[in-house]
Amino acid sequence: MDTLAIVILNYNGRAFLARFLPTVLAHSDGYPVYVADSASTDDSVAFVKANFPQVRVIELARNEGYAGGYNQALHQIRSQYGGAAYYVLPNSDIEVTPNWLTPVLALMQANPQIAACQPKIRSYQDRHLFEHAGAAGGFVDWLGYVFCRGRIFATFEPDQGQYDDNRPVFWATGACLFMRADVFHQTGGFDADFFAHMEEIDWCWRVQRLGYQVWACGESTVYHVGGGTLPKANPHKTYLNYRNSLFMLYKNWPADGWLWGKILLRLVLDGISSLLFLKQGQWKDVWAIVRAHFAFYGHLPRLIGQRRALRRQQTADVALYPHSVVWQYFSEGKKLFSELDK
């Protein structure tokens, strides 16, 4: 068994592989590098095999998104290659840096309760700024809105060393996710119904309910392009984000008697947010939010079963940020993580 497996999920990402895979290999510290291809229609597989023979290629039969793709790939790595003690899942549009692996591995090896960890995620384009997908570690407020150290909604902080510490967070980003392999397989991996977006937050929430921890490592930094597979301004991304947020919340919200009240409030706030798309003439995004809500209703029977099963397995309580980050950001003007209540 390897100590670490570096696993890149790819879908029609030949250009990103050409740009970033050499750097991953240069800073792999001798650990095996895998490219798991989700039935790409470009020449990604042939390109990797011809130019990077040291990379282990896993060819998946179809594209099942981030969640299903990684579930299959990591299962194959365990069954066909002997597995690894830890996985790291850098997106194909991640530029790694020297020494990106060692501090995160050392942190996780020193604390067996850490199931997931992330480095600092900075923008590839604006290299001094934190990037949207995870920044320096994520949190969830009492209504299920996600935010990060270094990024709240559309405010991106410059990295001035303010988050160079190692500390527990609520969720670690899927853009460059380190995981303890036995915990990943113990939990059944990601929820494949998510397809893409928020599956890592759902998984981090679930592992904390089992008593594990999620951390961010400020000693490691990578750079993220963002939108490598699905562009940011895309109605399908809007659909997945709104739908999966409701999936995650229904499955994991604490049994405090206010579940449906919070769900109703979230649905109302989703409706208000759709007015912003409407104002900008983005009708497809408005329709995406409507479809996301109906998809949530359609999945309720399955979600009810998942919620019950997770409650039976739960061994630890998980604390959400006990305020509304939406209210604090838009009404109180608190744009920085340091301005929020500790």
Rank of each mutant, 00 (worst) to 15 (best):
D2P: 00
L9N: 12
N10K: 02
N12S: 11
A15L: 06
A15S: 13
A15E: 14
F20V: 05
V24C: 05
A26I: 09
A26W: 04
S28K: 13
D29H: 08
V35P: 09
A36V: 13
D43R: 15
S44G: 12
V45P: 11
V48Y: 09
N51T: 14
F52V: 06
F52M: 07
V57L: 06
E64Q: 12
A73I: 05
Q80H: 11
G83K: 03
G83T: 08
A85L: 12
Y87F: 15
V88N: 12
N91L: 08
D93K: 11
D93F: 14
I94D: 02
V96Q: 07
L107T: 15
M108K: 02
N111C: 03
Q113C: 00
Y124C: 02
Q125R: 13
D126T: 10
F130L: 03
E131C: 12
A135N: 14
F139Y: 15
V140N: 03
Y145W: 10
F147R: 07
C148I: 00
D165A: 07
N166G: 01
N166P: 00
V169Q: 06
F170A: 08
A172N: 11
A172Q: 09
G174I: 08
G174D: 14
A175P: 00
L177V: 10
R180H: 13
Q186S: 15
F194A: 04
F194G: 00
I201P: 01
D202I: 00
W205N: 03
V207Q: 09
V214K: 04
W215E: 09
C217R: 05
E219F: 00
G228Q: 08
T229K: 13
P231N: 14
H236I: 14
Y239N: 04
Y242K: 07
F247S: 01
N252K: 01
D256R: 03
G261H: 10
K262A: 00
L264H: 05
L265A: 04
L267S: 03
F277L: 01
Q280T: 05
W283C: 00
K284D: 12
V290F: 10
R291P: 01
H293Y: 11
A295V: 05
F296C: 04
G298F: 02
Q306E: 10
R307I: 04
L310A: 10
T315H: 08
K335P: 01
K342R: 14
